[in-house]
Design a protein around this nucleic acid. Structure first.
Length: 236
DNA sequence: GCGACAG
DNA sequence: ATCTTGTCGC
């Protein structure tokens, strides 16, 4: 059911349309205490991928723990089908976490996708958990220009359908694109991600996931589930 | 037909 | 995404 090795694009499209039927765009749990961020890293011409999920307290944004795994990916990067490349590895990292967080933020689209199946929706539906997509660039949908000030927003639409928001996380810096993945509303997705925005363009969950996964790739961190130590937080 | 195209 | 150096701005 999760063997995306020898799947064709046509089959992948069919899978996305199937998963779309299970999408829930209403907030399942409003009482968030922990939030996770997931990301993947890899070397230039290698099918080895380094996946990581970090868990932070919400809304304090203090790193609590993180899970790292190394595996292979067979599916290439194809726009609109990122989930087939990255979800299997992220699943492994997720399953290694003893106490699951309340919600997971992934680096990529949520329902801002032709079939509403960006990586965050893909993962969310398969695991039946709350997810949010936080992308650094647009894939699908349109939005009007937003003001230059921090926390300016502009709704992302597909026709008359509201899919997400462009969110300026820093003054005079390119916005990020927020959309529900699964089991969370558009408005709550935006509200939660604003809460995760401290001083960087990329909100804390995916920013820290990206940081950990790169340290892992270059050998500065090891595979496994780790509790964050106090020193890490004090000196970062 | 042509361009655009998450990571 | 990754590979890379300097450079501009807060």
């Amino acid at each position: 059911m999760l063997n995306y090795n020898a799947i064709s694009i046509a089959e992948a499209t069919a899978v996305q349309n199937e998963l779309r039927q299970k999408l829930i765009l209403q907030t399942y749990n409003k009482n968030i205490t922990t939030i996770a961020g997931g990301d993947i890293s890899h070397n230039k011409d290698s099918d080895t991928v380094y996946a990581g999920i970090v868990i932070l307290s919400y809304p304090q944004m203090v790193l609590q723990s993180y899970s790292l795994i190394e595996t292979k990916t067979k599916f290439p990067y194809v726009p609109q089908y990122l989930g087939f490349r990255e979800v299997p590895a992220l699943m492994e990292a997720w399953e290694q976490i003893p106490a699951k967080p309340d919600i997971l933020v992934l680096d990529g689209q949520g329902i801002t996708h032709p079939r509403r199946m960006g990586i965050a929706s893909h993962f969310g539906v398969l695991k039946n958990i709350q997810t949010i997509g936080c992308a650094k660039s647009m894939l699908y949908g349109s939005y009007d220009p937003l003001a230059d000030e921090k926390f300016s927003t502009s709704p992302i639409y597909s026709g008359s359908e509201l899919l997400g928001y462009a969110l300026r996380t820093k003054t005079n810096v390119k916005p990020v694109y927020i959309a529900p993945g699964h089991k969370v509303s558009v408005e709550d997705s935006l509200r939660i991600m604003k809460q995760c925005t401290i001083k960087h363009r990329i909100p804390e969950p995916t920013r820290l996931a990206h940081e950990k996964v790169n340290l892992f790739r270059v050998g500065k961190l090891k595979a496994g589930y780790h509790l964050a130590d106090i020193q890490t937080n004090l000196f970062t």
